[in-house]
Design a protein around this nucleic acid. Structure first.
Length: 565
DNA sequence: GCCGTTTTCGGCCCGACTGTTTTCAGTCG
């Protein structure tokens, strides 16, 4: 990592790297963990800013307006910008071993974990770490999470989650329009199709002077590294992880360019069988996407469906689904309150849901065995049930449903006795423990849980945490068959770190004609809006209003939820 | 180190379980 910037301006990434290095070194010193976290947070913040921190410092702007930067860190950033070095970091480095100094070039690696690997495998260098990763030795010795950590730490291009890409796209889009002189800019590619993990952000840009846009874009975030450019394209490496690709398109062929740049490759292959090669210049005069589809007598294909499945054929037949939209949602069936690990009361959650225009909300606090989430005792659940009954007497035109997020225990039994389950309107049953069970055991565990007549909805079916944890192994098709035969439902958990069911699994469940609940798993009133992320994936799965439990009016919903009783 | 509608100190989520790194770190929401 170079200590001085060639251009004299430090990029946000370079400043962030130094803050991350401080955090790494402090980790080794076993310093106050909150101090370490503060440096990490500040580094992530700086890395993600569109404005140049170098410029802010030179303009004497107060960096403390940013949450997470206070007295000490703003001083440190000032020192980095003004001198190119940071005394406290140099001091920490001077006492560090050569392995650690080498590690600090990879700020995303956790030195404590890497040192454990070094010790166990008898290595001491990054290139050895890399080969241990590639040979599978790390996964074999330390498991998948460690392997994932090392892989992330060593990879230059980092993937980001879709909801982070939303923020990033806003910042970049604004920069393109306000600073670079672009006339029009629109995000395309994986992002437009709402793929849940993004490694590349693509923008289509309309401008008279593309080279000026490419040049000005280099000043994004202080300084942005241009990897490659042609007369009509430019690729940069974003400090916050993914690649940024700009592509020029003219007003005249904007619609055509949108289709091509949105992809996916598989979709375009199928599309070109209908339209002829869409790579040759001949067809290039569609201003809007709608014009293109009209010309070929096709239905407009929403970007979320462009994955090369059956969407082209259905578009030609005019049988594309009318995808679900935000206004179709009538309630939320997975929410937590202060009774377990939520931040707000039943009343507050209900009031907010009502203000959002919902007709009902299901309260699903955790069951007793999930201690860390303050799982509610049977007695307290009964108190809550009575409280909700009373509350419902006062409400008109809105209903609070009595439920619980019931743990599926290791043996497949449910974490609450039948006599209390009976009092609930429905249940969300989820796995929160023993992720390491094998595929057969895990599948059996869920099948058995479903056999309980009070099992209603399977919560976050695979337990995955995007970019963090792969989720447990399951024979999902078998679970689908079992669910169908017993009238159980699935949840599409909208939490942006989960998105579980995945669009692919939601498609499978839908193909088996199983209704899905799109739920937020809200732990506070502010989280209801995350329904947006679940809806995006539901649209990718081709779901319509009629396929989704919480699009149904209350009476119809209750009838479905109680059909097993 | 940061933060503040309990603001200049004291909290920043935490507590039980798991499993092999064998004695405590990692993990679950």
């Amino acid at each position: 990592m170079s200590q001085t910037a060639e251009s004299g301006t430090l990029s946000n990434a370079e400043i962030a790297d130094r803050l991350s290095s401080v955090a790494q070194m402090l980790t080794i010193e076993k310093a106050n963990p909150y101090k370490i976290r503060a440096y990490r947070r500040a580094a992530a913040l700086v890395r993600g800013l569109g404005e140049s921190v170098d410029e802010l410092v030179r303009n004497n702007d107060d960096l403390r307006v940013y949450a997470g930067i206070g007295e000490a860190i703003s001083k440190a950033i000032r020192e980095i910008v003004e001198t190119g070095t940071l005394t406290s970091l140099e001091k920490l480095r001077s006492t560090a071993t050569p392995e650690l100094v080498e590690l600090s070039a990879h700020p995303r690696l956790d030195p404590v974990r890497v040192l454990r690997v070094y010790k166990k495998l008898g290595i001491s260098r990054i290139d050895h770490l890399r080969s241990a990763l590639e040979s599978g030795k790390i996964e074999h010795t330390f498991g998948p999470r460690m392997a994932q950590h090392v892989r992330h730490g060593l990879t230059e291009i980092e993937s980001i989650l879709l909801y982070h890409a939303h923020q990033l796209c806003d910042t970049i889009g604004t920069f393109l329009l306000n600073r670079t002189g672009a006339d029009h800019a629109e995000p395309v590619g994986d992002y437009r199709r709402r793929v849940e993990i993004i490694t590349r952000l693509d923008f289509l840009v309309q401008t008279r002077n593309f080279s000026a846009v490419v040049e000005t874009m280099k000043t994004y975030g202080g300084r942005l590294r241009l990897i490659d450019s042609t007369a009509t394209t430019a690729t940069y490496s974003l400090p916050s992880g993914p690649l940024l690709c700009l592509e020029r398109a003219t007003k005249k062929d904007w619609g055509y360019a949108l289709i091509r740049a949105t992809g996916s490759d598989a979709h375009l292959r199928k599309l070109s069988r209908v339209t002829g090669s869409i790579w040759d210049g001949a067809a290039k005069s569609f201003r809007r996407e709608e014009d293109f589809y009209k010309h070929f007598e096709m239905q407009f294909i929403p970007p979320e469906l462009r994955e090369g499945l059956d969407e082209v054929a259905r578009s030609r037949r005019g049988t594309l689904p009318q995808l679900i939209a935000e206004q179709d949602i009538r309630g939320d069936l997975h929410t937590h309150t202060i009774a377990s690990d939520g931040a707000d009361s039943v009343e507050e959650m209900a009031r907010t849901a009502r203000e959002l225009g919902y007709e009902y909300i299901g309260i699903t606090d955790h069951s007793p065995s999930l201690k860390i989430a303050n799982g509610q005792s049977v007695e307290n659940l009964r108190v809550q049930i009575r409280k909700i009954d009373k509350l419902n007497l006062r409400l008109s035109g809105f209903r609070v449903l009595k439920s619980a997020e019931v743990d599926i225990l290791a043996d497949g039994t449910l974490d609450l006795p039948d006599d209390v389950l009976r009092e609930l309107d429905y249940t969300v049953c989820s796995i929160h423990s023993r992720f390491a069970m094998n595929r057969e055991q895990q599948t059996q565990r869920i099948l058995r849980a479903m056999d309980n007549r009070y099992f209603t909805i399977l919560g976050h079916a695979t337990g995955r945490l995007l970019l963090k944890r792969p989720g447990y192994e399951l024979d999902f098709e078998r679970i689908i068959r079992h669910a169908k035969s017993l009238n159980c439902f699935f949840e599409l958990n909208s939490s942006p770190d989960r998105l579980d069911l995945s669009a692919e699994n939601a498609r499978l469940a839908h193909a088996a004609d199983i209704d899905i609940a799109i739920s937020t798993d809200s732990h506070s009133t502010g989280e209801f809006r995350t329904i947006r992320y679940g809806l995006e994936q539901a649209r990718r799965a081709g779901l319509q209003k009629r396929d989704v439990l919480n699009c149904r009016p209350l009476d119809a919903l209750l009838k479905l939820l109680k059909q097993r009783r």
